[in-house]
């Protein structure tokens, strides 16, 4: 694979139907197999939902059997790590698997933080996505581990998914990196992508994705606040703010921009006609009372 081929593949995907990104990725990889790793790790795809199977009936261990979301960050071949149990499961069968030596697991401290993040974002998910939403969060190290505390920084991804029957599907992917800026401040970089598809009986389709980036340096105040709490507060607020902004952007782009562009081609139906028709409808409605 050359850099030119990789750049061309990314450029091409931005000029094709965003609703077929998975199929198009597979097509590109079949044309040029050496593109696989780089494309799969850099192109945002709709999230896969994994429903783990119970190993034994009546297993009441916390998180067992709980659905989670899959992306390249919790993948190991065909297996994906659950944020609830910290175990790997097969995407197709939901069967738990024995980890191999290469399987990634966060260290104890980071795993504790990951659990706090997952619990917190699950509350967030319940409040914003309500019934039917799923959340997952994965953390990983970014630099050499010093005394196993990750005080200098770490990275992670926060995922949300919600489907509404055939009508629509929402995937949020928030990738963030935290690094120590000064003795008492941290830098937070967040890249958020929302993939949204809406479909009315296959006749009218609105689909695609928007991406935004934000970066913030935040001072640790009060300076005795626990690091885990400090980080979840900052990452949580940033995710909440950007998702709320992007929801507004999506609404504007999907429902206003596209219609405006359509009317640059075909003019809006004469509004006087419309008004006459509305009045007619009202009169008809009144007559039917």
């Amino acid at each position: 694979m050359s850099d030119e081929q990789y750049d061309a593949a990314l450029d091409l995907l931005s000029r094709l139907n965003p609703g077929s990104v998975q199929e198009n990725l597979m097509a590109l990889i079949s044309l040029e197999p050496t593109l696989a790793d780089d494309l799969l790790s850099s192109v945002d795809q709709p999230l896969k939902l994994l429903k783990p199977k119970l190993q034994q009936q009546n297993d009441n261990t916390t998180g067992v059997g709980k659905d989670f979301l899959c992306c390249d960050y919790n993948r190991d071949g065909d297996y994906y790590r659950s944020p609830w149990t910290n175990k790997y499961y097969n995407l197709g069968t939901g069967q738990q698997t024995q980890e191999t030596e290469e399987s990634y697991f966060p260290g104890d401290e980071l795993r504790n933080r990951e659990q706090l993040f997952n619990d917190s974002f699950e509350v967030y998910k319940d409040m914003y996505y309500e019934n039917g939403g799923v959340s997952s969060c994965y953390l990983w190290e970014t630099s050499e581990i010093e005394d196993n505390t990750y005080d200098n920084g770490f990275a992670g991804v926060v995922l949300f998914q919600k489907g509404k029957g055939q009508l629509g599907k929402w995937d949020s992917i928030h990738v963030f990196e935290v690094s120590k800026e000064t003795e008492d401040a941290f830098n937070y970089k967040l890249t958020s992508t929302i993939i949204l598809h809406l479909n009315d009986n296959d006749k009218t389709k609105l689909g695609g994705n928007l991406t935004r980036q934000v970066e913030k340096v935040i001072k640790r105040q009060p300076d005795n606040i626990a690091l885990d709490e400090f980080h979840i507060t900052n990452v949580g607020s940033m995710v909440e703010d950007i998702e709320t902004q992007m929801r507004t952007m999506l609404e504007v782009v999907y429902f206003e921009k596209t219609m405006d562009i359509y009317h640059q081609l075909k003019f809006a139906v004469d509004t006087s006609d419309n008004r006459a028709k509305q009045q007619e409808d009202i009169i008809k409605g009144l007559q039917n009372l």
Partner: peptide
């Protein structure tokens, strides 16, 4: 349809509490 039944039921603008988390 897509706006009222689809989009609006995916993610709320604010939680039911009407304030941020």
């Amino acid at each position: 349809n897509l706006n009222e039944l689809g989009f609006k039921s995916l993610r709320r603008r604010l939680p039911v509490t009407r304030s941020k988390i």
